[in-house]
Computed example of a mutant assay.
Amino acid sequence: MLGLQAVRQRHILNVMSDKKQPVPAKANPAPVESQSSTGEIDAFIRQARTLAASATGSGRLILSLDATMSRQPTWDLACALQGEMFDAVGKAGALKVQLVYFRGLGECRSSGFVTDTDALKQLMTRIECRSGQTQIGKVLAHALKQTAAARVNALVYIGDAMEENIDDLAEKAGSLGLHGVPVFVFQEGHDAGAEKAFKEIARLTKGAWFRFDRR
């Protein structure tokens, strides 16, 4: 009888032990960061080709970039990616391209409109980053001046920060939108204030915002 009771007690203990076994927790999926998809980049290239095909004579495209010191750590990678953009735009056909960049204390320069994008790539690789504030307003004002002289079909801007009055930028962006100049903004990094401003510029001009990195 004692032996039977001992067996029953062991059985009860085993059942209770099984119930106490923890249920493995489901691993939480890692957050997926929003990135510009290959489809979005392809859409931009198709847009460039459409501009070239639909423009009377040669379409005009402004490629502008922030060359302030905050971009120095990734400048080589950025130049490589921007060079690939030049190559893609160069293959689009009848497009005249102008390079605009700003850096330092109020320095904002532009090239002429050219069809030889290799020359612009060489110019870009000679640019050195210098400390200074962003000058996005100057880039937008420059685009307005250029399209007043002869239509600019699109403006591409590449940068990582925004240190200006967003209302002033929105006013200029709205004017570009009225002139039919879409702005395609490629943001390097994850500055939230810059992202808000860049997306607003893209919205007001009926352009688009993209994340700018190797992916």
Score class of each variant (00 low, 15 high):
Thr68Asn: 02
Ala30Ser: 12
Ala52Trp: 10
Ser175Arg: 07
Leu61Ile: 11
Val7Leu: 00
Arg49Cys: 06
Leu51Pro: 00
Gly207Glu: 05
Ala154Ser: 04
His142Pro: 09
Lys26Ile: 04
Lys91Arg: 12
Arg8Cys: 01
Val89Ala: 13
Lys138Phe: 09
Val100Ile: 10
Asp118Phe: 13
Ala88Phe: 12
Ser110His: 14
Gln47Gly: 14
Glu107Met: 12
Leu77Ile: 09
Leu65Ser: 07
Leu169Ala: 13
Ser175His: 04
Lys196Ala: 15
Ser64Val: 02
Asp87Cys: 05
Phe210Ser: 13
Gly177Trp: 07
Ala94Met: 08
Gly106Glu: 02
Gly193Gln: 12
Ala170Trp: 00
Asp76Leu: 13
Val156Thr: 14
Phe86Tyr: 14
Phe102Leu: 02
Ser37Pro: 02
Phe198His: 05
Thr147Phe: 14
Glu163Ala: 14
Glu200Leu: 14
Thr56Tyr: 13
His179Trp: 09
Phe198Ser: 06
Val181Phe: 00
Leu4Pro: 04
Cys129Glu: 00
Gly180Pro: 10
Leu120Asn: 05
Ala80His: 11
Arg8Tyr: 07
Gly3Met: 07
Leu144Val: 00
Thr147Val: 14
Ala149Cys: 13
Gly177Gln: 01
Phe210Glu: 09
Gln98Ile: 11
Val97Cys: 14
Ser70Gly: 01
Ile12Pro: 07
Trp75Tyr: 09
Val97Arg: 15
Met69Trp: 12
Gly159Thr: 03
Ser58Gly: 08
His142Trp: 10
Ala148Val: 06
Leu99Trp: 13
Met162Asn: 07
Cys79Ala: 11
Lys96Leu: 04
Leu105Ala: 01
Ser64Asp: 08
Glu171Phe: 08
Ala149Gln: 14
Thr74Lys: 12
Asp18Arg: 15
Thr115Asn: 09
Leu140Ile: 00
Gly177Asn: 05
Val15Gly: 01
Ser34Glu: 07
Ser111Asn: 12
Pro73Met: 09
Asp87Ile: 12
Ala88Gln: 13
Ser34Trp: 05
Arg203Leu: 05
Asp191Arg: 07
Ala119Val: 05
Asp167Ala: 15
Met1Gln: 12
Thr134Leu: 03
Ile45Cys: 01
Trp75Asp: 06
Leu2Asn: 07
Leu204Ala: 08
Glu188Cys: 03
Ala6Asn: 01
Gln98Leu: 11
Ser36Val: 10
Glu164Trp: 00
Ala161Trp: 02
Phe113Ile: 01
Asp18Glu: 15
Ala192Thr: 12
Pro29Val: 01
Asp168Arg: 03
Leu178Ile: 00
Ala208Tyr: 08
Gln135Thr: 03
Arg126Thr: 09
Glu171Val: 12
Glu40Met: 05
Leu51Gln: 06
Thr115Asp: 11
Leu105Cys: 00
Pro182Gln: 10
Lys26Gly: 03
Leu99Thr: 09
